[in-house]
């Protein structure tokens, strides 16, 4: 299997703190690769380094065979990195539909159109509505984003990423705040999504991670201490000590 995303020896320090300490990992076509680790392990920092927006001190990010390390967030998004944020990052004054339309517009690229109403762009609307329907938000299309529940915002984040038809998804805690049934639904959804594009999934919900992940990497203090299948990770003594032990057996 080919590696769509190939992260090599990434480093990032904030003063004396090594937030990302020589991290290498890969994402293969068709897989879900989960990134887990305790709070402050550097998961979100790593996602920012991959998606752009945070320059790495050293190392490189290769995406679809191309070195994207020097590229901006915008260029990486255009190349096909679809990101969702840990803390929902949406246009809050906009309706739900407008937010997904923005994604569809980004995928279309035709932003320098000044006269024709965006609502008359049936192609973009269809694309946007399809994405909303897939995450189950279609009945909320006309709602203001600021009025959505926390969980619905998470779904909207995923819907916007879907409109981009990315080659790879980078998802930072898509289950957070979804509740048990929402979490289950999202798990089912992501399970099907991997055949479209592989997912690098940062997640705290261990049930979801073990249900979904083909491979799991454990990040502790900016370092990957183990990578393997769910069973391998569960059995890994270093992981148990550093992370899983307390939470899973409590």
């Amino acid at each position: 299997m080919s590696d769509l995303l190939d992260i090599r020896n990434l480093k990032k320090s904030f003063g004396a703190l090594k937030a990302t300490d020589d991290v290498s990992l890969t994402l293969r076509a068709g897989e879900i690769h989960a990134l887990i680790g305790p709070n402050g392990a550097g998961k979100s920092t790593l996602i920012k380094q991959i998606a752009g927006g945070l320059r790495s001190d050293a190392g490189s990010v290769h995406f679809a065979g191309r070195d994207v390390t020097p590229l901006s967030t915008v260029a990486r998004a255009r190349a096909g990195l679809g990101r969702t944020f840990q803390i929902s990052s949406l246009a809050m004054e906009y309706t739900v539909l407008q937010n997904v339309l923005l994604g569809a517009l980004g995928q279309d690229g035709g932003v320098m159109r000044f006269f024709r109403p965006i609502m008359a762009r049936n192609d973009l609307r269809d694309r946007a509505m399809t994405a909303l329907t897939r995450v189950g938000l279609e009945s909320h299309a006309a709602k203001r984003t600021a009025d959505l529940s926390h969980g619905q915002r998470r779904q909207l984040e995923v819907a916007v990423a879907l409109t981009l038809s990315p080659k790879v998804f980078l998802m930072d805690e898509p289950m957070a705040g979804l509740g048990a049934s929402g979490s289950q639904r999202m798990t089912g959804f992501l399970d099907g999504l991997r055949s479209e594009a592989p997912i690098l999934l940062v997640e705290h919900d261990m049930d979801a991670v073990f249900a979904l992940a083909d491979r799991i990497s454990v990040l502790v203090y900016g370092r990957v201490i183990a990578t393997g299948t769910a069973d391998e990770i569960k059995a890994d003594p270093a992981v148990r000590e550093a992370y899983l032990g307390e939470e899973e057996e409590a």
Binding site: A51, S89, L101, L105, G106, R113, R116, P117
Partner: peptide, 28 residues
């Protein structure tokens, strides 16, 4: 009026609300 409702207006107003969001969908 037309500008505010156009594709450009959607992106411009979105950039005001959340520039990071606009970058993430691949628009500068």
């Amino acid at each position: 009026w037309r500008l505010a409702r156009s594709a450009f207006g959607l992106a411009l107003s979105a950039a005001r609300q959340n520039a990071e969001r606009v970058e993430t969908v691949g628009l500068g």
